[in-house]
């Protein structure tokens, strides 16, 4: 067991846990924008900064990202010192200037007293704050259809060469995991379009309601060695089928 303190509270940890996990478990809120439990931390948004020190550091301390810093014995962690708060505010200023319309950014900024950005606003700025959640989610759990391309200010999330991806299965995990709803997509009953590719959402073989995209069904079938067709029944019809087979058995 590793023992440390966070904001004066004693916490214990098993090996390998990050400060953010421990703080949240202890009920201490640390804001994050690039953190997602489903993927490895990236340390991109810099909002979760906390100040750490040790008695033997003689008053010296440093800022680290809580989402990435592993628990260490005897560490003294402070989550809301003036240094931490100033850094956080300045990061939010930058994010707000970058993506002034992103709801998640506006909400957090307002919490820190920032209603209007003090820096030049990027009028063309979209909602993407490059938190890297979408690309990590897709790369880790789905097919790795998107990645961050270019460097510096030109960095963006895209499919290779901005072309319709041949591995994207249209599951929408990226768009739904995005904290700022920055990923464009459109869907109606029968189709879904994302990353420049239009998918057929296969209609339920019983009632015709939309189920999953053919690509996602194939990908799932391949992973688990089951028949693709199994996925083309909607949940309502599956319930009805379950009910019917029950009745058949019973009566």
């Amino acid at each position: 067991m590793i023992r440390l303190t966070i904001d004066g509270r004693r916490v214990e940890s098993r090996n390998g846990e990050y400060l953010l996990t421990l703080a949240r478990r202890a009920g201490i809120e640390i804001p994050t924008l690039c953190h997602h439990e489903a993927v490895e931390p990236a340390g991109a948004c810099r909002l979760c900064m906390v100040e750490i020190t040790r008695p033997q550091w003689n008053g010296w301390s440093k800022l680290v990202t809580a989402c990435l810093y592993p628990a260490e014995e005897g560490l003294i962690v402070k989550t809301s010192t003036e240094r931490v708060l100033r850094t956080r505010r300045e990061v939010l200023e930058l994010l707000l200037a970058r993506s002034p319309r992103a709801e998640a950014v506006r909400r957090l900024a307002a919490q820190y007293g920032i209603l209007e950005p003090k820096y030049a606003v990027d009028q063309e700025g979209d909602n993407c704050i490059l938190c890297d959640i979408c690309t990590r989610v897709c790369a880790t759990h789905v097919t790795g259809a998107i990645s961050r391309v270019n460097r510096g200010v030109a960095k963006k999330v895209a499919t290779p060469f901005d072309e319709a991806s041949d591995v994207c299965v249209g599951c929408m995990a990226c768009a739904r995991s995005c904290p700022t709803d920055a990923i464009a997509f459109s869907q109606d009953g029968a189709t879904r379009a994302i990353w420049g590719k239009t998918f057929e959402v296969v209609p339920c073989t019983v009632c015709g309601a939309p189920t999953v995209t053919r690509e996602q069904a194939r990908w799932m079938a391949q992973r688990k060695g089951v028949a693709e067709e199994d996925f083309y029944v909607c949940d309502v019809c599956k319930v009805a089928k379950t009910g019917l087979s029950c009745r058949k058995v019973m009566w």
Binding site: V137, A173, R176, Q216, A217, V233, D235, K238, V239
Partner: peptide
């Protein structure tokens, strides 16, 4: 917190017991 909201589980449950929340999208 761990869910990436891909919807695979909904498609996979043979009995229709896994459902999709259209509003919350999970």
């Amino acid at each position: 917190e761990r869910c990436i909201r891909c919807g695979s589980c909904v498609a996979a449950c043979p009995f229709g017991n896994m459902r999709w929340e259209p509003l919350a999208q999970h």
